[in-house]
Amino acid sequence: MSDLRVTPLNALHRELGAKMVPFAGYDMPVQYKLGVMKEHLHCRAEAGLFDVSHMGQVILRHPDGVEAAALALESLVPVDVAGLASGRQRYGFFTNEAGGIMDDLMLANRGDHLFVVVNAACKEADIAHMRAHLTGCEVEEISDRALLALQGPKAEAVLEALVPGVADMRFMDVAIMASEYGELWISRSGYTGEDGYEISVPASEAEEFARALLSHEAVEPIGLGARDSLRLEAGLCLYGHDIDEETSPVEARLTWAIQKLRRAGGAREGGFPGAERILAELSDGAARHRVGLRPEGRAPMREGTELYAEAEGGTPIGRVTSGAFGPTIEAPMSMGYVPKDVSAEGTQLFGDVRGKRQPVTVAALPFTPANFKR
Results as ranks from 00 to 15, higher is better:
276 E>G: 14
366 P>R: 14
104 D>P: 02
90 R>L: 08
368 T>P: 01
121 A>Y: 01
293 L>C: 08
165 G>W: 00
315 T>D: 11
110 R>P: 00
100 G>P: 09
181 Y>V: 09
153 P>M: 04
89 Q>Y: 03
34 L>P: 11
351 G>L: 00
80 D>L: 02
309 A>V: 11
9 L>A: 02
252 A>M: 06
265 G>S: 10
214 L>W: 02
355 G>Y: 05
294 R>Y: 04
292 G>K: 06
37 M>N: 15
123 K>M: 05
182 G>H: 06
25 G>A: 12
343 S>M: 07
10 N>F: 03
160 E>T: 14
227 R>I: 06
105 L>T: 01
71 L>S: 11
242 D>K: 10
49 L>M: 04
14 R>Y: 10
211 R>P: 02
32 Y>M: 07
46 E>A: 13
160 E>G: 13
304 G>E: 12
334 S>K: 05
343 S>R: 02
199 I>Q: 07
1 M>D: 14
75 S>H: 06
367 F>S: 10
356 K>L: 10
323 G>A: 10
108 A>K: 06
60 L>R: 09
14 R>D: 12
308 Y>R: 04
219 V>C: 05
279 L>E: 06
180 E>G: 15
360 V>T: 04
210 A>F: 08
154 K>R: 14
14 R>L: 12
323 G>Q: 05
36 V>I: 15
272 F>C: 05
307 L>A: 05
191 Y>E: 03
187 S>H: 04
91 Y>N: 05
161 A>I: 00
